[in-house]
Computed example of a mutant assay.
Amino acid sequence: MYPEDLKYTSEHEWVRKPGEADGSVRVGITHFAQEQLGDIVYVQLPAVGDAVTGGKTCGELESTKSVSELFAPMSGRVVARNDELDSAPERINTDPYGAGWMFELVPDDPSVFDGLMSAEDYRAQVEG
Protein backbone atom coordinates (compact mmCIF):
# COMPACT_ATOMS: atom_id res chain seq x y z
CA MET A 1 0.00 0.00 0.00
CA TYR A 2 2.99 2.32 0.61
CA PRO A 3 5.83 1.41 -1.79
CA GLU A 4 9.21 1.20 -0.06
CA ASP A 5 11.06 2.97 -2.91
CA LEU A 6 9.14 6.22 -2.37
CA LYS A 7 9.47 9.04 0.16
CA TYR A 8 6.42 10.61 1.82
CA THR A 9 5.25 13.87 3.38
CA SER A 10 2.97 14.45 6.35
CA GLU A 11 0.53 16.08 3.88
CA HIS A 12 0.17 12.68 2.11
CA GLU A 13 2.24 13.30 -1.00
CA TRP A 14 4.70 10.73 -2.30
CA VAL A 15 7.95 11.51 -4.09
CA ARG A 16 9.81 9.18 -6.47
CA LYS A 17 13.38 9.71 -7.54
CA PRO A 18 14.28 9.99 -10.34
CA GLY A 19 11.51 11.50 -12.44
CA GLU A 20 11.49 11.35 -16.23
CA ALA A 21 13.10 14.78 -16.68
CA ASP A 22 16.80 15.19 -15.89
CA GLY A 23 17.34 15.87 -12.17
CA SER A 24 13.62 15.75 -11.37
CA VAL A 25 11.44 13.93 -8.87
CA ARG A 26 7.88 12.74 -9.54
CA VAL A 27 5.07 13.67 -7.14
CA GLY A 28 1.62 12.25 -6.42
CA ILE A 29 -0.72 11.59 -3.51
CA THR A 30 -0.77 8.42 -1.47
CA HIS A 31 -3.29 5.61 -1.47
CA PHE A 32 -4.38 6.80 1.98
CA ALA A 33 -5.04 10.34 0.68
CA GLN A 34 -7.05 9.24 -2.34
CA GLU A 35 -9.07 6.87 -0.15
CA GLN A 36 -9.88 9.70 2.28
CA LEU A 37 -10.89 12.03 -0.56
CA GLY A 38 -13.16 9.56 -2.33
CA ASP A 39 -13.83 9.78 -6.06
CA ILE A 40 -11.65 12.55 -7.49
CA VAL A 41 -13.49 14.53 -10.17
CA TYR A 42 -11.20 17.53 -10.80
CA VAL A 43 -7.49 18.27 -10.48
CA GLN A 44 -5.72 21.64 -10.58
CA LEU A 45 -1.96 21.16 -10.96
CA PRO A 46 0.90 23.67 -11.10
CA ALA A 47 1.97 24.69 -14.60
CA VAL A 48 5.27 23.73 -16.18
CA GLY A 49 7.73 26.46 -15.28
CA ASP A 50 6.04 27.33 -11.97
CA ALA A 51 8.25 27.71 -8.92
CA VAL A 52 6.78 25.85 -5.94
CA THR A 53 7.70 26.15 -2.28
CA GLY A 54 8.05 23.09 -0.06
CA GLY A 55 5.12 22.70 2.33
CA LYS A 56 3.02 25.30 0.49
CA THR A 57 -0.09 24.79 -1.63
CA CYS A 58 0.56 24.25 -5.33
CA GLY A 59 -2.73 22.79 -6.54
CA GLU A 60 -6.12 21.44 -5.64
CA LEU A 61 -8.03 18.18 -5.76
CA GLU A 62 -11.81 18.09 -5.86
CA SER A 63 -13.70 14.95 -5.00
CA THR A 64 -17.34 14.03 -4.55
CA LYS A 65 -16.76 14.57 -0.80
CA SER A 66 -14.61 17.70 -0.55
CA VAL A 67 -11.90 19.95 -1.95
CA SER A 68 -8.35 19.35 -0.75
CA GLU A 69 -5.14 21.26 -1.29
CA LEU A 70 -2.12 19.74 -2.99
CA PHE A 71 1.19 20.62 -1.34
CA ALA A 72 4.67 20.79 -2.82
CA PRO A 73 6.90 18.26 -1.05
CA MET A 74 9.96 20.47 -1.62
CA SER A 75 10.87 23.73 -3.27
CA GLY A 76 11.75 23.70 -6.94
CA ARG A 77 10.61 24.32 -10.49
CA VAL A 78 7.85 22.27 -12.16
CA VAL A 79 9.19 20.57 -15.30
CA ALA A 80 6.29 18.23 -16.17
CA ARG A 81 2.66 17.67 -15.28
CA ASN A 82 0.29 14.79 -15.91
CA ASP A 83 -2.11 16.46 -18.33
CA GLU A 84 -4.02 13.19 -18.74
CA LEU A 85 -5.56 13.87 -15.32
CA ASP A 86 -7.51 16.78 -16.86
CA SER A 87 -9.77 14.30 -18.68
CA ALA A 88 -9.28 11.28 -16.38
CA PRO A 89 -8.84 12.45 -12.75
CA GLU A 90 -10.07 9.04 -11.56
CA ARG A 91 -6.59 7.66 -12.38
CA ILE A 92 -5.53 9.10 -9.03
CA ASN A 93 -8.01 6.74 -7.34
CA THR A 94 -7.27 3.68 -9.46
CA ASP A 95 -3.46 3.99 -9.71
CA PRO A 96 -2.12 6.63 -7.28
CA TYR A 97 1.52 5.46 -7.62
CA GLY A 98 1.49 4.97 -11.39
CA ALA A 99 -0.83 6.60 -13.96
CA GLY A 100 -2.16 8.90 -11.21
CA TRP A 101 1.14 10.79 -10.74
CA MET A 102 0.65 14.57 -10.72
CA PHE A 103 3.78 16.54 -11.57
CA GLU A 104 7.56 16.51 -11.66
CA LEU A 105 9.87 19.13 -10.26
CA VAL A 106 13.58 19.80 -10.18
CA PRO A 107 14.34 20.48 -6.51
CA ASP A 108 16.24 23.60 -5.49
CA ASP A 109 18.03 21.42 -2.91
CA PRO A 110 18.03 17.72 -3.92
CA SER A 111 19.15 16.69 -0.42
CA VAL A 112 15.66 17.55 0.90
CA PHE A 113 14.51 14.25 -0.65
CA ASP A 114 16.55 12.30 1.90
CA GLY A 115 14.79 14.09 4.77
CA LEU A 116 11.29 13.02 3.71
CA MET A 117 9.54 10.15 5.49
CA SER A 118 10.23 6.53 4.68
CA ALA A 119 7.34 4.17 3.90
CA GLU A 120 7.64 2.78 7.43
CA ASP A 121 7.44 6.25 9.00
CA TYR A 122 4.48 7.23 6.82
CA ARG A 123 2.65 3.98 7.61
CA ALA A 124 3.13 4.68 11.33
CA GLN A 125 1.68 8.19 10.86
CA VAL A 126 -1.50 7.09 9.08
CA GLU A 127 -2.08 3.82 10.94
CA GLY A 128 -0.86 5.05 14.33
Rank of each mutant, 00 (worst) to 15 (best):
M1H: 13
P3W: 11
P3S: 14
P3T: 10
E4M: 08
E4P: 02
T9N: 09
S10K: 14
S10P: 11
R16E: 14
R16Y: 12
R16G: 14
K17I: 01
G19N: 12
G19M: 07
E20Q: 15
A21D: 10
A21L: 08
D22E: 15
D22R: 11
S24G: 12
S24I: 11
V25P: 06
G28Q: 00
I29Y: 01
I29H: 00
T30W: 04
H31C: 10
F32T: 04
G38H: 06
G38L: 06
D39V: 10
I40H: 01
I40K: 00
V41Y: 05
V41S: 09
Y42V: 06
Q44A: 07
L45R: 03
P46C: 09
V48F: 05
D50L: 08
A51V: 13
T53W: 02
G55K: 02
G59E: 07
G59K: 01
L61M: 07
S63W: 09
T64N: 10
K65W: 08
S66W: 07
S66L: 09
E69H: 07
L70S: 00
L70G: 04
F71R: 04
P73R: 07
M74A: 08
S75Y: 09
S75F: 12
G76A: 05
R77N: 09
V78K: 06
V79F: 11
R81F: 01
N82C: 12
N82D: 04
E84F: 12
D86M: 12
S87D: 15
A88L: 13
A88G: 05
P89V: 14
E90Y: 14
I92W: 00
D95P: 03
W101R: 12
F103M: 09
F103N: 03
F103L: 13
L105C: 09
V106M: 05
P107C: 06
D108V: 01
D108I: 03
D109I: 01
D109W: 05
P110C: 01
S111Y: 05
S111W: 07
S111C: 07
F113T: 10
D114I: 06
G115S: 13
G115H: 15
L116Q: 06
L116T: 05
M117Y: 13
S118R: 11
A119W: 02
E120D: 14
D121R: 12
Y122S: 10
A124E: 15
Q125K: 07
E127P: 06
G128E: 03
G128Y: 11
